[in-house]
Amino acid sequence: MNLIQIKNCYKVYNNGVTAIADLNLTIQKGEFVFVIGASGSGKSTLIKMLYREERPTNGSVIVGGINVAKLRNSKVYKLRRKLGIVFQDFKLLPKLTVYENVAFALESIGMNSKEIRPKVLKALESVGLKEKVRSFPNQLSGGEQQRVCIARAIVNEPKLLICDEPTGNLDPETSKEIVKILDNINKEFDTTIIMATHDKEIVNRMKKRVLLLENGVLTGDYMKGSYKAHESN
């Protein structure tokens, strides 16, 4: 089953920069995909189109049956409820505790507090932060903050988890931990994960599908690939 289907997709920004050119791509349900490429290669644009922060200029981007290109602003929330997003800069609310930060995602979509509690605790447990529910973000390490961000992204049990350089601000050890958590989520809940990254070591070790973008063009799509694979090409 195709979770993501991208056909003849172009993205040209208003200033004339072509960020994505003629992209064709399908991603199946349950896959773990790395998106790699240098800065300015179109990684972020691709990621942002998946959650409709950017709109394709041409072609179609279908995520979970919704055509992002045709999605009206007022209906964007329907897409966003199907997916979770993890950011490089965490985007946690400093005045809320860990629990409240995760619960905020469910409150925002109008869920009642009885339903919220077990879901939040389950999500925090799967990222190993159950003991820190009462802590505030500034009392946590970077890795822990990123785990809160992951818990918030998966609390609504999305089919797709989009990670935009989730380890970009973290040291190698912590990065490994985070990727391990993502891998567990992928295996345990069969959640599709797309992760944009610069981290060669992680990509090489994980042996997952790798998409290589160069100047907005998809130049490599390797199953069980790695940086090495494309370097040897």
Partner: peptide, 16 residues
């Protein structure tokens, strides 16, 4: 604004 940004990213409807 950060609160609003997160609300929109996690799928809060416009009315919310």
């Amino acid at each position: 604004r950060s609160e609003i940004e997160i609300m929109r990213l996690v799928g809060a409807s416009n009315a919310m």
